[in-house]
Design a protein around this nucleic acid. Sequence first.
DNA 1: ATGGGTCCTG
DNA 2: CAGGACCCAT
Length: 131
Amino acid sequence: TSHLKKAKLMFFYTRYPSSHVLKACFHDVQLSRCVTSQLIKWFSNFREFYYIQMEKFARQALAQGVADARSLAVERESQLFKTLNTHYNKANDFQVPQRFLEVAAITLREFYSAISKGEDRDPSWKKAIYK
DNA sequence: ATGGGTCCTG
DNA sequence: CAGGACCCAT
């Protein structure tokens, strides 16, 4: 549906929209509890994909011997961005805000440093990065 | 008791 | 993405 597409584009701005924010953004729809929880679920799924990619590319950068996290950036031409873009903006008919690239770079660096420090041995090491 | 989250599956 | 099990906070 178009709501899914709208939600995905919204993800470029907020990773953890509260139910209130969702209510506001979808005020046109009669959000039943079921639909609301569905939207919540969508964002949970969006985050999963997002963080999985982040971890994947962070490990990849580490394996490729990237000196330090500061050199990690997320450009529109980068593979990471392309992967995320095709997932949330398949039609590619939306101008992804620059802010998203900055946020993505930040989380990518957080994964990178956490992994390089061996913090990924802690079962709940991702919790510090999430949110 | 409910609702938001994660993790794992299909 | 949807379902379900399970955790945590309200």
